[in-house]
């Protein structure tokens, strides 16, 4: 299900090589973690979090189709 996030992030950032997406399942919740280059954070978050929220809605559809888990999306900078 995290493929949707990977596709969107890679399409929107300036540096697709820095896009990392991972998924962890905890009970009935899936945690998807998106990491992009620092200078690309704005592109995947958007003004007022608009891009991030849109991604969450689409991720929710993907989750409902996949394993029907609740899903969380965290967007982080590389450490």
């Amino acid at each position: 299900m995290q493929e949707i996030i990977e596709y969107i992030a890679r399409s929107l950032v300036d540096d697709p090589t820095q896009v990392r997406v991972s998924q962890r399942r905890q009970g009935s919740t899936s945690n998807v973690r998106l990491e992009v280059a620092k200078q690309d954070m704005g592109r995947v978050i958007g003004r007022g979090g608009k891009v991030a929220n849109a991604m969450r809605l689409l991720l929710r559809v993907a989750a409902s189709r996949d394993n029907n888990s609740r899903v969380r999306l965290d967007i982080v900078e590389p450490e």
Binding site: I8, S11, K50, V51, N53, A54, M55, L57, L58, V61
Partner: peptide
């Protein structure tokens, strides 16, 4: 209906993301 969502919020999200990706392209 899963693609439309409550108050069409999923449809709006899909349209918004599509515009961003196509616009970038």
């Amino acid at each position: 209906s899963v693609l439309i969502g409550r108050r069409a919020e999923t449809l709006e999200a899909l349209q918004y993301i599509t515009r961003l990706i196509v616009g970038k392209e």
